[in-house]
């Protein structure tokens, strides 16, 4: 009889590989197809620099989406990320431009504010058992409100060191170059992937997303992990804000409006289940690249208007949500 169980397990093996990796592979395939299609259609598209520009233009989104991946893997959601990005640009700009603070002091302070906000939200979510949706919504109002308290106009950043970093380009072979932000974003993504795969914190994140009840019964530190996840998301949003201010060299309360939606979309398109417990950081990176490449293609097309981006993202969301639904239905 045991042989029956064994065969059934073996037979399921290829199926398992497929179902765990299908969404990520689908996203990778989509990305490749978009790149090839763009290369065939537009001259000057099929170059390494176009890809790197996608990275340069979306470094901040990548960092924010990395934080969002942690939250979504536990089955939560963080609506405050866009507002925290805006708050970070605002705090940076006002402290450096109006206050004359050095960047070396401002950046750690901004990261601390973001993390503290995330920590507070995580505590409320866990200890008072209020839905993440509502708590992070309040966090979003709070962060945007703080932006407007600091100032309602855009503040440009003139600190020489900061602008130097913003404009610096690191040359790569083949006459290509990337910005400092890209390096930071890639480093964050790499570190996050390491944490998720190789540390207990990361595995606990997946366990809670799979079943919070079971995680508790297995003796895992559920409270600590859930709070850590929102803190990480807050930190990533603040760092995303720093990169955003490097990108635009200004701070503005209306920055990054709706970025939470882009981040959620990138995570979902990257194959992470919104119910938690399943997904890869690599998928999120691919998801961000897909969003970025859509914008690139639309700008290359020239005649297509910018709102097609949103419609395409919506369609992709639908396709990937349907795909996830089919996979989970097949598993059940």
């Amino acid at each position: 009889m045991s042989s029956g169980i064994l065969t059934s397990a073996r037979l399921r093996l290829p199926g398992r590989l497929r179902s765990a990796y299908i969404p990520v592979l689908a996203t990778a395939g989509l990305l490749a197809a978009m790149f090839v299609a763009g290369g065939v259609r537009y001259t000057g598209f099929a170059s390494g620099q176009v890809v790197l520009n996608v990275f340069i233009d979306n470094a901040f989104l990548l960092v924010v989406a990395v934080g969002m991946t942690f939250v979504i893997l536990t089955g939560g959601i963080d609506l405050s990320v866009g507002a925290v990005v805006a708050l970070s640009t605002m705090v940076s700009a006002s402290l450096m431009t109006d206050g004359g603070w050095p960047p070396l002091l401002v950046v750690p302070l901004v990261l601390l504010i973001g993390s503290a906000l995330g920590l507070a939200m995580g505590c409320i979510i866990h200890y008072f058992d209020i839905q993440p949706f509502i708590v992070t919504l309040a966090g979003m109002f709070l962060a945007r409100g703080l932006c407007y308290v600091i100032g309602t106009d855009s503040i440009s950043i003139t600190d020489p060191a900061y602008t130097a970093v913003a404009q610096a380009r690191i040359a790569l072979p083949g006459e290509m170059a990337v910005s400092v932000s890209v390096l930071i974003a890639v480093a964050v993504a790499g570190a996050a992937a390491y944490v998720l795969h190789y540390t207990r914190l990361g595995r606990n994140v997946y366990a809670i997303g799979g079943s919070e009840q079971s995680a508790l019964l297995m003796g895992l530190p559920v409270a600590r992990t859930k709070i850590a996840v929102y803190t990480i998301s807050g930190f990533c949003s603040a760092l995303g804000g720093v990169l955003f201010s490097l990108y635009t060299l200004s701070g503005y309360g209306l920055n990054a409006l709706g970025m939470e939606l882009d981040a959620i979309a990138a995570v979902v398109i990257g194959g992470t289940l919104l119910t938690g417990g399943s997904g890869y950081l690599a998928g999120t990176v691919l998801g961000v690249l897909v969003l970025g490449l859509i914008q690139t293609i639309i700008s290359f097309e020239g005649t297509l208007s910018s709102w097609w981006t949103k419609i395409f993202i919506g369609l992709l969301l639908f396709a990937f949500i349907l795909l996830q639904r089919l996979i989970s239905a097949r598993r059940a």
Partner: peptide, 26 residues
């Protein structure tokens, strides 16, 4: 009461994974 989304090995060892310098030895 296990986490069906994790691997069989993890379900046995989660919370007490063998580690070296904090890195899980898969």
């Amino acid at each position: 009461n296990l986490c069906a989304n994790l691997s069989v090995a993890e379900n046995i060892f989660i919370g007490r994974e063998p580690r070296r310098l904090g890195r899980i030895q898969w």
